Each structure stands twice: as structure tokens, then as C-alpha cells.
Amino acid sequence: MMTSRRALLSGFLATPLVPLTSVLARGQQAPLLPLTRACEDGDEPTLSREAGPFFKPNAPLKQDLFLDAPRGEPFTIAGYVVDDRCSPAPRSLIEIWHADENGDYDRQGFRLRGHQFADEQGRWWFNTVMPAPYPGRTRHFHFRIQRPGGVVLTTQLFFPGEPGNARDWLFDETLLITMTDAGDGRFGRFDFVV
């Protein structure tokens, strides 16, 4: 029996992020954290990408986007917002928007659009659906992230194994979501370094 997205999310939320700087300062071995390549390097922020033509400001405070497209394949995406020293960036703003299961964006309202604030450990998550590719683009999510008082990072996240990745001029392998199949959809993980 496969684990559910809810169980995977619960496990993620139950595991605290241990800042590498405090561990190293005490002379301990650094823990093996499944962080993005940039955070492992310790100095490179997440790559920026254009917002695209479908960004709309003032998306609602909302983590559960699945009800906007109930016929889509369920997908939960979660991660941390950290600084270049892998320390959590609490209360960071995270915005998401993406195409639906048919490759269409809502241009009138706020379907499959939302925002939230990272918790005190820098954690964030959204329940949504797998976006479909559309002509000229591979499957992707759009994100905007901003630490309190920081600059806005606008980027796009991509899905591993997509045939369109190689043809998409915005694709970069450092922006791949780490994915797990669940019994009720898929679970993805990505940590933003801002």
C-alpha cells in the first residue's frame, strides 16, 4: 500500500530543519538534509525565471488549491525557504500560480492561484493539481518568494522526466522538483534559497 500525500506532508511538517550553521559551530558533523543543490553549496540563491504573462497580483491567502480543479491529478508541493547559509527564513511570502489539467490559466479570477507565509521554521506547502504542459512550454509551476524586507524572487519549478524539458528555454535542472508517488496523487519537495 502506498503512502498518502497527507502522510508525506505530515512527515515533512514533523521534521524540523536544523540550521547547518549552528551544527557546524558546535563541531558536529553536518546532518544530511535533502535540500536543493544551491543550499548544499551554501552560497547560490534559487535561479530566477520570468513571471510570464499570466501573473496576477493579490492572489488570495490559500494553501488548498485542489478544489479549483477537482478533475486534476492531486499534487502536494512543500519545502522550506532558507537563506544562503541554510537558515530558515520565517514569515516569507510564497505565491503560486499555474495552468490547470488542460494547460489553461485563469485570466479572470484566482483559480489555481494563492499565497501563504512560511512558518517559523521556514516551511510552506500547497495542495493543488499537476499542471498540464501547453504549446511552447513544459509542465511547470510559477512561484514568487520574498523574505520579510527582502527582494522578490520570481521563478518556475519543473517536473523530472518531462519530454518537453529539453525544449523549454526556461528549464534548468536546478529547478526540478523532487517527486514521490503517493497512493492518492503525487508529493513534491523544493527548498527555495533566497
Rank of each mutant, 00 (worst) to 15 (best):
D64H: 14
P88V: 00
G72I: 02
N102H: 13
S92A: 14
A99S: 15
Y80G: 03
L65K: 09
G109E: 13
H98M: 04
R85M: 09
D84R: 14
E101W: 01
N58P: 04
Q108A: 14
F110H: 15
R107N: 07
K62I: 08
E95I: 09
Q108C: 11
Q63W: 11
L65N: 08
C86E: 04
Y105P: 00
W97I: 01
L67E: 13
D106C: 14
P90L: 02
P90V: 00
I94M: 00
Q63R: 15
T76P: 08
L67C: 13
L65C: 13
I96L: 15
Y105T: 00
N102G: 09
G103V: 03
N102S: 14
G109C: 04
Q63A: 14
F66I: 01
A69K: 03
V81W: 11
E101S: 10
G79W: 02
D83K: 07
L93P: 01
N102M: 10
Q63Y: 06
R91V: 06
R91Y: 12
Y105Q: 02
F75S: 06
L61P: 05
P60Y: 08
R91H: 12
A69C: 11
Q108R: 12
F110L: 06
P88Y: 00
F66A: 09
Y80T: 11
K62F: 05
V81C: 07
D68P: 03
L67D: 09
Q108I: 15
P60N: 09
T76Y: 05
A59R: 13
Y80S: 06
V81L: 02
D84S: 14
L93A: 02
E73V: 13
A89V: 15
D64T: 04
E95T: 12
G109R: 10
F66C: 02
A69R: 10
P60A: 12
K62V: 10
G72S: 00
A59H: 10
R71E: 14
D83R: 07
Y105H: 06
T76K: 02
A59I: 07
Y80A: 02
K62H: 10
Y80C: 10
Q63H: 12
N58K: 11
F75P: 14
E95M: 11
N58I: 01
L93D: 01
D106S: 05
D83W: 01
A78S: 13
A59N: 08
G103C: 00
Q108D: 13
D106F: 13
R71D: 12
R91T: 07
F66W: 14
W97G: 00
G72V: 01
P90F: 02
I94T: 02
H98P: 07
D104S: 10
T76H: 03
A89N: 06
A89F: 08
